[in-house]
Amino acid sequence: MNHFFCESISNEIGILNEQDSHHAIRVLRLKEGSQISVSANDGRVYLAEILNGSKNELRFKCSHLIREEIRPLINIAITPTKSNDRFEWFLEKATEIGVANIYPILSANSERKIYKIERGEKVIMAAAKQSKKGFLPHLHELEKFSTFITKNNTMPKYIGHLVKGPKKTLHAINFKEENLFLIGPEGDFNEKELDTALKAGFQAISLGDEVLRTETAGLQVAVAAALLR
């Protein structure tokens, strides 16, 4: 069954946007009476039936609630990898597992200096449709480390880095509350960045003894949040 997202559902009725309507009618050959699953990005996933539609506007009516997801509480700030494929793999898997926000960060040792979110948003949408999610992660614009780190964020904040010293383990973190995790490039954060983050209230976390790729570290945090919540 094909899954779609819409802006809103009112009195069990919703409308797909022009792009999805065209895909449903012209590509998937769906028609009046065809069943789809839909979500308005509020966690609720409904079984719905197509009422009528054209390539510009497809209307549907929800028949019943399939499931209601718990809103993700994990937020991940991460440096995009040099390889687009590796970063998009992270976006895809993080979407399937469930995260609230993804913040691409530009640090001193970042291998990729430019990242346009349009392609990433398409990856996220495709992954969410394939896995029939009720929530879409919010992918933010690329932001400099120095700007992001100074934002007044009241949630617990953690930073993964390679410098030896006291660190919390993932098992010691309360994943039942909203958290922010900062994952650096494979060259790690430099000394100034790490010092700035710690002074801004970030706590050091351990992701194990191994040196992980950036996208693997980000995914490990997402999986831990899903399993330990």
Rank of each mutant, 00 (worst) to 15 (best):
Y158V: 12
E177T: 15
D209P: 03
G120R: 03
K93D: 00
Q203R: 05
H161S: 13
L212E: 00
A108M: 03
F148M: 07
L212S: 07
E186C: 10
K176H: 15
T169I: 10
L194T: 09
K199E: 05
P137V: 11
K144C: 05
F148I: 10
K199P: 00
T147G: 08
P166F: 08
I205Q: 00
E215A: 07
I183F: 03
L106T: 06
Q130R: 13
T169V: 08
R119H: 12
E118N: 13
L136N: 03
L182S: 10
K133N: 10
T147F: 09
S146A: 10
L142A: 02
S110W: 12
V123S: 03
A197V: 10
L139M: 07
N109I: 03
P104M: 11
E178I: 03
K129V: 04
M155Y: 13
E186N: 05
L207P: 05
L180I: 13
A108G: 01
Q130I: 00
S206M: 02
I149C: 04
P166L: 00
Y158R: 02
K157N: 12
Q130S: 05
G201L: 04
I149L: 06
L180R: 01
M125G: 01
E96N: 04
I105R: 04
K116L: 13
E177S: 07
P156N: 12
N190T: 06
E178A: 13
F175S: 05
A204V: 07
A94E: 02
A127D: 05
R119F: 14
R213W: 06
K167C: 06
N179K: 04
A172W: 02
K116D: 14
A126D: 09
G134Q: 04
E96W: 11
I105L: 05
F202Y: 10
S110M: 08
G208S: 04
K122D: 11
T169S: 15
F145P: 06
F87V: 05
N101C: 08
R119T: 13
D209R: 14
L142C: 06
S146Y: 07
E177G: 01
M155Q: 15
S206Q: 07
N190G: 02
R119L: 13
K168A: 14
L136C: 04
H161Q: 13
G184E: 02
L194Y: 01
